[in-house]
């Protein structure tokens, strides 16, 4: 499946998980979660409030950097997105580095707000656009944030969900097989008995993505918005 097709499947899969929520926030450098959140907002007739960090037009925050975190601790934030340079079989993420955390052989950008948000926001969705065995590992070198029951990981190949402490395959994207996923994943996993194919975006979603979602994305993610408009 072409890269853009995979992105659209990811966006739709995430947006479906956000239906019915009240407030969804999107962190830095997260174009796919931003598009999915804006799509969920458009599908909900604007009943979902979306706060995109870095946006002047799509953010509800007026009290500085701390407000997102205060919102989370009070239960005013229903969903947030995290990634991880490593993500392990239990759903734990590592944003810090490889090897000894005091002197990592490779350091990533830093923990940002993940150690806090991962335990306080009820719906944390993990997102990776490059599903591979170096990223999806049996055990992370450093636990920026531990996993949690029910946590989902949406990649460019499939959707996993933590059940009984480990990821299980929930759906695989069109074109993937259990074998292709096992070959691309650094941890062993079982498929849920009802694991099927990830639902592709329907025509309503596709037209919203090309229209109002792309328009709203221009401010913070201009290149990504242009690709959405091309379809």
């Amino acid at each position: 499946m072409a890269e853009q097709g995979r992105r659209l499947v990811m966006i739709a899969a995430i947006a479906r998980r956000l239906a019915g929520l009240r407030h969804v926030a999107v962190g830095a450098a997260s174009p796919i979660p931003a598009a999915a959140s804006l799509l969920a907002r458009a599908l909900s007739d604007d009943s979902v409030t979306v706060s995109i960090l870095g946006s002047a037009h799509h953010s509800s925050f007026t009290d500085g950097g701390r407000e997102l975190f205060d919102c989370a601790a009070q239960g005013r934030l229903d969903a947030f997105f995290l990634s991880g340079a490593q993500i392990d079989a239990t759903g734990a993420v590592n944003l810090l580095g490889l090897g000894d955390p005091m002197a990592p052989t490779r350091r990533f950008l830093g923990n940002f707000g993940a150690p806090y948000l991962a335990s306080l926001v009820p719906n944390v969705i993990l997102c990776r656009t490059d599903h591979g065995p170096e990223t999806l590992v049996e055990k992370v070198d450093f636990v920026t944030a531990p996993g949690r029951e029910g946590r989902r990981l949406v990649t460019d190949r499939c959707v996993f969900v933590v059940e009984e402490g480990r990821f299980r395959l929930e759906t695989r994207h069109p074109g993937e097989t259990l074998e292709s996923l096992r070959a691309a994943t650094g941890f062993n996993f079982e498929a849920k008995p009802d694991a099927g194919i990830t639902e592709a975006p329907d025509n309503t979603m596709l037209s919203l993505l090309r229209g109002p979602v792309a328009q709203a994305m221009h401010e913070v993610y201009p290149a990504f918005a242009a690709e959405l408009e091309r379809g």
Binding site: G65, Y116, V143, A145
Partner: peptide
């Protein structure tokens, strides 16, 4: 190494002239 809300909390403690501030979350992270 820190995390965003711990820095905001540390600054808020200083703003209030107190020695520290309690913070939710974070426990469970390495």
């Amino acid at each position: 190494e820190s995390t965003c809300p711990a820095i905001h909390a540390g600054l808020t403690a200083a703003e209030k002239g107190i020695s520290h501030l309690p913070l939710a979350g974070v426990i469970g992270s390495d």
